[in-house]
Design a protein around this nucleic acid. Structure first.
Lengths: 205, 205
DNA sequence: TTTGGAAACTTAACAGTGTTAAGTATATTT
DNA sequence: AAATATACTTAACACTGTTAAGTTTCCAAA
C-alpha cells in the first residue's frame, strides 16, 4: 500500500519546506533574526511543529551550515583544472575571500558561530570542514614539495594560510577595520591578500 | 555644601560596582550568561537601576572591552625595550597569542563581538583598536625599512599580520580546529605561528 | 517643622527568545 | 463502530533587553 509512502513523502516535504523557510529568513533577515517562530510563521505552522522535524534550532543551523559548504565547494570546483599547486593555492584564496564577501551570513555560520557545531558529538568528525581543509592541506603539501613554500609541516602551514584568510574576513565583518585609513578599509581584504602573496612569492623568487 | 559632592561620589561608586559585578559575571559565566538581570542580582539592585548608570547593555560591554585593551596594553609594555623591530614584531605576536589564550572572553569582546562597538558612532574613531594597531603598523613599517619584510604597504602588511594571528585564535576558539590531527590541534596556534615566522624569516635569510 | 519637589530606585509590563508538557483533531487499524 | 496511532496546536516555563509608571527617600525652602 502506497499510503505510508505518501506519508513518508509528505514528511520529507515538510522537513524540506522548514529548511527552505529557515534559509529564506536567514538570508533575508540574518542570523540573529532567524528564530523558530519566524520560520514557523513563514510555513504557516505552529512553532512546536518544527521540533517534530528537527531536534532543536542548532540542528537547523547545522543544515544551513552544510548548505554553505556545498555552495563553497561548488565555487572551488574550477580548481581541479589548475595543475600548478601554487597557482591553485592562490586561486583558492581568491575564491575563499570572494565567497566570504558574497555570502557573509553563510560564512559566519560555517566558520564563526559555535551553535551549528554544537550538533556534533565531542569525538565526532566535522565532515564539512575536514573535506575543505584536506583540499587545502593537499595543495599546501604540493607547494612545499615543489619548493614554493617554506613550511615545515603541511597541516600547520595550511592552518596558517586558512587563518590569514579567515582573520581578514572576520576582522572586516566584525567592524574591526575601523582602525584603518577609511580610504583603504573598503578594499583592505584584497590589499591584505596581496601582501600574503607578496610574502609567499618572496620565498622562491 | 558637601552633600552634592557626596552624592556625586556615591553615584560614581554605584557605577563602578555595576561594572565590577558585570566583570565578575562575564569572567565567571561568560559572554552569553552576562545579562542585565544577573548583574543586577549581584549588586542587589533592581535591573532597571542599571539603566540609570549605563545607556544600555552594549555600553557595559564596551566598558569591559576597554578593560581588555588596557590589560593587553599592559602586557605589550615590555616591547619598548626591544629595539630590533623584527624581534619586537615576533614578541608582539607571541604576547598577542598568549593574551588570547589566557583571556578568551576578553579577546572575544575586543575583536569578535559586534555589540560593544555598536556604542561607537559611524564616524567615530575606535580609539582602543586604533592605538594598538598603530603600534603594530609602526613596527611593521620599521621592519620594512630595515629589509625584514617584503610588504608594499605597511598598513596592509600590519593588517595581514594581525589577521593571521586573529584567524588562528578565532578558528581555535570557535572549534574549527576539529579538522586537524587531534594530536596537533591542542598546540596548533603555536605551530601556525611558527610557520608564519618561518615564512617571514625566509624573506631575508 | 512642615511642605514641596527633585532624585533614586522599584514594580510591572512589553515584546521577544528556545523549548516542552499536555491537549486536540485527524486518519488508520482492529 | 471503537481503539489506537499520527500529526499538529495551545499554553506554558524560564529566560532576554528595555521602558513607563509608581514609590520611596532625601534635601531645601516656607
Amino acid at each position: 500500500m502506497g499510503i505510508n509512502e505518501r506519508k513518508e513523502r509528505e514528511k520529507e516535504l515538510l522537513q524540506k519546506s522548514i529548511l527552505t523557510a529557515a534559509r529564506e529568513v536567514f538570508l533575508e533577515k540574518g542570523f540573529d533574526q532567524t528564530s523558530i517562530r519566524s520560520i514557523a510563521q513563514r510555513i504557516e505552522y505552529s512553532p512546536t511543529t518544527i521540533y517534530l522535524y528537527f531536534k532543536d534550532k542548532d540542528a537547523i543551523l547545522f543544515a544551513l551550515h552544510s548548505e554553505g559548504f556545498q555552495l563553497l565547494g561548488s565555487k572551488l570546483e574550477v580548481l581541479y583544472t589548475v595543475e600548478n599547486p601554487y597557482e591553485r593555492l592562490k586561486a583558492m584564496g581568491r575564491i575563499y575571500l570572494q565567497f566570504a564577501a558574497d555570502h557573509p551570513d553563510y560564512y559566519d555560520l560555517m566558520f564563526v558561530q559555535k551553535s551549528p557545531l554544537s550538533n556534533l558529538e565531542d569525538d565526532e568528525l566535522w565532515k564539512e570542514g575536514a573535506t575543505s581543509f584536506d583540499g587545502l592541506k593537499l595543495t599546501v603539501q604540493q607547494c612545499m614539495d615543489e619548493g614554493y613554500l617554506p613550511f615545515k609541516d603541511a597541516e600547520a602551514g595550511a592552518y596558517f594560510v586558512w587563518s590569514a584568510l579567515h582573520g581578514m574576513c572576520n576582522l572586516y565583518d566584525r567592524g574591526r577595520c575601523k582602525v584603518l585609513d577609511p580610504e583603504k578599509s573598503e578594499k583592505i581584504v584584497d590589499l591584505g591578500f596581496e601582501e600574503l602573496i607578496r610574502m609567499m612569492d618572496s620565498f622562491r623568487k
